[in-house]
């Protein structure tokens, strides 16, 4: 008996929890409202099914509780009933799947006019690259990566010279313009995930992956790494700032181009610095995320061992 009551209570409790919960989707800041709609459609269809089946079960448990002088009904099967149930379930599945696939078709079709920027991941930080005036990103390869050229841009590629490098966790994008995000990793899998944009995609070393979205709301949004990438995974954060076009352009103008940064690196006076790229990355993690001393030591110890 108690179990019937508890099943009902759990269902009621879950429903109440849903309506009281302060934990829900972050405010949408991209064009992917259609994803939210599909989720809500799925949520309500499955929610009704969840409540209906469980309440029916609770009723059955109560209604047919054990009585010494009663017999259960002997009924091996009921094809008609099973047929109906299969039919209804199929209908529900189609109702969820069809809109889902339509939205997915959108998701995989990047608009022609989308502008491009690149996200580069490495343990455990983000950096970004914009094509310069030519609108084309220079070729990259891991073999070109060194301290002066952390992005691994092919030094003599003419398309690469005006590429704008953002060696910071923060990137800006202009509002209301579709953007195709190219994703690239130097070392292991990462995943560029901004909860407010809904979209996400893995960064795969050796491949360039992509997804697209249109930012629709001014603001700054957090980037999280959503694919386990080693023990600093949880600290791999970033910021995407959605700007008005004018502010975006001003921000972009402050960033160095590849040619400028190479020239700076070759200039006298910077040669003496013994700082390595990796030491930099540890410093930037600890500065941004207030990692404890102990963790910092760990990271350093690990760096020492990997660099031998």
């Amino acid at each position: 008996m108690a179990i019937a009551i508890v099943v009902v209570l759990l269902i009621v409790g879950s429903t109440v929890f849903h309506f009281m919960s302060p934990w829900w989707f972050t405010p949408l800041a991209s064009n992917w409202g259609s994803i939210d709609d599909t989720i809500m459609l799925t949520f309500w269809i499955t929610g009704v099914v969840l409540i209906a089946i469980n309440l029916f079960m609770a009723y059955a448990i109560w209604r047919y509780r054990y009585q010494k002088d009663r017999r259960a009904e002997y009924e091996p099967e009921n094809k008609k009933l099973e047929g109906w149930l299969i039919g209804l379930t199929t209908l529900g599945v189609v109702a969820m799947l069809a809109p889902g696939l339509i939205v997915w078709a959108d998701f995989v079709t990047v608009p022609e006019d989308a502008h491009v920027f690149e996200v580069m991941g490495q343990q455990w930080q983000w950096s970004y690259r914009y094509p310069g005036r030519d609108g084309i990103l220079g070729t990259t390869d891991n073999k070109y990566v060194d301290f002066d050229n952390p992005f691994g841009i092919k030094p003599d590629d003419p398309y690469g010279q005006d590429d704008i490098l953002v060696q910071s966790d923060e990137v800006h994008v202009p509002i209301d313009q579709p953007v195709k995000v190219l994703l690239r990793s130097l070392d292991v899998l990462h995943d560029f995930y901004v909860p407010n944009f809904r979209a996400k995609m893995d960064l795969v070393p050796g491949l360039i992956t992509y997804f697209w979205f249109t930012p629709t709301k001014i603001g700054s949004y957090e980037v999280l790494c959503a694919e386990l990438c080693g023990q600093g995974h949880y600290a791999m954060r970033g910021i995407v700032v959605v700007d008005e076009q004018i502010e975006f352009e001003a921000w972009l103008a402050e960033q160095p181009t590849f040619a400028q940064s190479m020239a700076l690196a070759r200039a006298p006076g910077t040669d003496g610095q013994e700082q390595t790229a990796s030491a930099q990355s540890v410093a930037s993690i600890s500065a941004d995320y207030k990692i404890s001393d102990e963790q910092l030591n760990l990271l350093n110890a690990y760096l020492d061992s990997s660099l031998e």
Binding site: L10, I53, G100, R198, A226, E227
Partner: peptide, 30 residues
Amino acid sequence: AIGFIFTFINGGITGLFLGNVVVDVPLSDT
């Protein structure tokens, strides 16, 4: 057994979220 049915319905239903590719995008790895 009843506890199984209850939790299995719940877990099965959330599978419909994650199986439906576009719904999975925001929810995967969370």
